[in-house]
Nucleic acid binder design. Structure first.
Lengths: 194, 194
DNA sequence: AATTCTACCTAACGCCCGTTAGATTTTAGC
DNA sequence: GCTAAAATCTAACGGGCGTTAGGTAGAATT
């Protein structure tokens, strides 16, 4: 029983491995045969699970965006206090990176490898994701009585600190993820005084 | 006359065009023939100016790192006041991006396309570049009496805001480069209060 | 036990890529 | 103008890529 579930788990395992290989080498450099080798299959065999290499990338990125969207949606719904929510958002983003390094890097480095409709779908989810962030930051602004001038720019500066960690941060290093999240929060809200 | 100079100018023009094409499509997706078309030449003809596609990328990235290094070296030498210097660093980084969008994006997205010694050389110059930043931030810390705890982490958060602009910032938009630089400085040093 | 479907495999096709060899045009110096 | 070097071009090669056609072993269903 649970044929369906078993099958989905198998597919997910393949997508996970694929994400690792694609992330490590980059979408263009990683060949279908490379991914096949990592999964112990043949290149041709993989095509049972997706129609094209680009669809494979889409499945990975689209699924990850769904995960991110669900995360911030839940936080927005559950947390009322703007400060608490902003903290939670930052922490969520950092944790999401730590638990999905390959997917996180992929969506930053290789989102452009999608084309046409697939690109639009993923890009649209990114916009909706940013929408949650904007709401949250806007609420924090009002709470603190800060003028919401250049709200979008400040949002990008915050997102910058959260996303750039893919370039340098080691989750296993001396700085734990929650501590990093708190540092980002402090720097953004209070500067070096925090 | 100025044969040498003329030749170098021609080469530089080709490298500039190549940087644009490589940046737009990504190093792997852009073919030598694409670059050739953009320069009005043949693929084979380009090989007069470099030995391999990877060497082409190296020439572009290495040259840009030299440019960046010279910039911060000069600032470090000329400016004594740590606050002024930190401001200048941020402004320089933003301006460098605005005036070299293709090169800036390339060095972020495709530095990994270099291999072996070429990769090491570029990476080494990036380390030296960060060294100037670290010195500058450290001096600012001491000036302000901030504990230099997690200096390197804070440096990465600052660099994050400076570099992530490649993902969203339009130099021709309503926010002028110096104003953006000032916002980064304020957010980093004083938070939203700034 | 026979059949059908799932989950792969082997083999190969056609395309485009980076690169090279060798010919050819364009430029510079005498 | 002649010559030599510089700056290209045409043509092609080998290789790896994404992808497909068609086959097959094993599991599930009847």
């Amino acid at each position: 029983m649970d044929r369906q579930a078993e099958r989905q788990r198998r597919a997910q395992a393949i997508f996970d491995t694929a994400a690792q290989v694609l992330c490590q080498a980059g979408y263009d450099k990683a060949s279908i045969r490379d991914i096949a080798q990592a999964t112990g299959m043949t290149g041709a065999g993989l095509y049972y699970y997706f129609k094209s290499k680009e669809e494979l990338l889409f499945i990975i990125l689209d699924g990850y965006m769904d995960h991110l969207l669900e995360g911030v949606r839940e936080l927005s719904q559950r947390l009322d206090d703007p400060e608490e929510r902003l903290r939670a958002f930052i922490n969520f983003q950092v944790q999401a990176y730590c638990q999905n390094v390959a997917r996180s890097k992929l969506i930053i480095n290789d989102e452009n490898c999608l084309s046409g409709q697939r690109y639009q779908i993923v890009k649209d989810k990114q916009r909706r994701y940013l929408g949650y962030w904007r709401e949250t930051l806007d609420a924090y602004y009002r709470l603190k009585g800060v003028e919401p001038e250049f709200l979008s720019v400040n949002l990008m500066l915050l997102i910058a600190m959260c996303n750039w960690i893919y370039q340098w941060y080691d989750p296993q290093g001396p700085l734990a993820p929650p501590a990093l999240a708190e540092m980002i929060f402090q720097r953004f809200t209070k500067g070096l005084a925090g």
